[in-house]
Every structure is written in C-alpha cells, then in structure tokens.
C-alpha cells in the first residue's frame, strides 16, 4: 500500500516535471518562433537565409540527438547543466523551428490589403502589427499550434534518456524496480493522453470564441 502511494507520488512528480518541460520550452519556442517570423518578414536576405538553414537543421535532426548534444555537449564544455535545463534547451531549439514555420504560414493566410489600408490611414506600423496582424496570425495559427504542442508534449518523454524525472523516467524506474511493464507503460500513456485531450479541448474553446474568416 505504501508502495502504491509512493508510486503515485512519483508519477505526480513526473507529470509535474513533464508539464514544466512542456510549458517552459513551449512558451519559449512560441515566442522565439514569433520573433523569427517578424525577422523573416523584415525580409533581409541574409537573416532569412540563416533562418532557413536553422529551420531545416532543427527539423531534420532527431530530437534525441539534440537532447544528447545539449546534455553531454554542455558537460563536455565544462558547464554543470541539470538534465531538465538541457532538455528545455534542446526542445526549444527544435520546437521554435516548427512554430516559426506555423506562424509564417499563418502570416501568408492574412489577406495582404490590410497592411496597405493601415499605411494609407497613417496607422503606426507597431500598432498595426499588435492590433491587426498578430491577432489574425494567432487565430489562423491556433489549430496547428496546439497540434504541434501536443506532439511536443509527447516528445518530452524522450527526456527520460538523459535521466530527467518526467513521466517516462518514472515508468522506466518502476519497471526496473520490478513493476509490471505493461501496467506502467499504460499508466504513462494514460497521463499523456489525458493532458493532450485537455490541450485539444482548450484549443476548441479558444477557436469557438473567435470565429472569423
């Protein structure tokens, strides 16, 4: 019984850590992705080229390799980086590329005449971006954004490979400690599913609130 209680606490801690991984790297990479979009829109050839190279690299390298690079790489460089920080760096590095592509596609979906109308009206560019462009980009991006975020959440399970303490690490630990593998894999799977369903629900709520073409 006390063993069950302990397992429960471990899973709760694991879930918490997975959520921290998701929220911190998710928020960071959304912000970075948005910044990249803005930089790309400024349309300088060199920055756009660098962004494309980055995006290509980040999307084609397996996340596990990025995790190892961030963790062992920082150790090799002599920095004492905790596994969770290394995981956040790795996840942010590749998730930002996906979000950047999502935002760029969303930007393409905003009818272009509005920028010209804003210029003709004398609206400052910053006001236009904040009040007209961004709300529309975010609206169009919200579906793919949440979709990619659910994938990111599943990818946090990879962090178990550098011995963080998230859900999959807990399941692994329990299995090594002699627990029934099937049970623990099912428990871990159920936690991922529950949280992702909640994410999708939130997205539906948000998009039902603002519907325009």
């Amino acid at each position: 019984m006390s063993d069950l209680g302990q397992t429960l606490i471990l899973y709760l801690q694991g879930t918490l850590q997975a959520l921290i991984l998701l929220v911190v790297s998710g928020v960071l990479s959304v912000l970075i992705g948005l910044c990249f979009m803005v930089v790309d829109l400024a349309g300088h050839k060199i920055t756009s080229f660098i962004l494309h190279i980055y995006s290509w690299l980040a999307q084609t390298t397996p996340p596990l390799i990025l995790l190892f690079l961030a963790f062992y790489g920082s150790t090799w460089a002599g920095w004492n980086v905790s596994p969770i920080v290394a995981a956040i760096v790795a996840f942010t590095f590749f998730a930002a590329a996906y979000y950047y592509e999502i935002f760029r596609a969303a930007y393409e979906g905003v009818p272009p005449g509005q920028a010209e109308a804003a210029r003709a009206l004398g609206i400052p560019y910053f006001s236009f971006v904040r009040s007209i462009l961004l709300p529309q980009v975010l609206r169009i991006a919200s579906g793919p954004l949440i979709g990619r975020t659910t994938v990111l959440f599943k990818e946090t399970s990879l962090a178990s490979a550098i011995s963080t303490g998230e859900i999959m690490s807990v399941a692994n630990g329990r299995i090594y400690a002699g627990g029934n593998p099937l049970v623990h894999v099912l428990i871990a799977g159920a936690i991922y599913a529950a949280i992702n369903i909640a994410l999708i629900r939130i997205e539906r709520r948000l998009s039902a609130k603002v519907t325009y073409k």
Binding site: P111, G113, Q114, A118, L121, F128, S131, I132, R139
Partner: peptide
C-alpha cells in the same frame, strides 16, 4: 488623404465599429 480600395481591405479581426474607430485612436 483618405483612401478606399477595390478589395475594401477591412481589418478582419475587428467589428465594424472598431474598424472605423481604430485609426483615429492609433494615430
């Protein structure tokens, strides 16, 4: 100068009232 375009170019995320109110406020 005020300009009216072939494709109207209203701000899609704003109501009719907000579309007309916005520029004088932002400027």
């Amino acid at each position: 100068t005020g300009m009216v375009f072939q494709q109207f170019n209203l701000f899609r995320n704003m109501t009719v009232l907000e579309n007309v109110m916005y520029a004088p406020m932002a400027c």
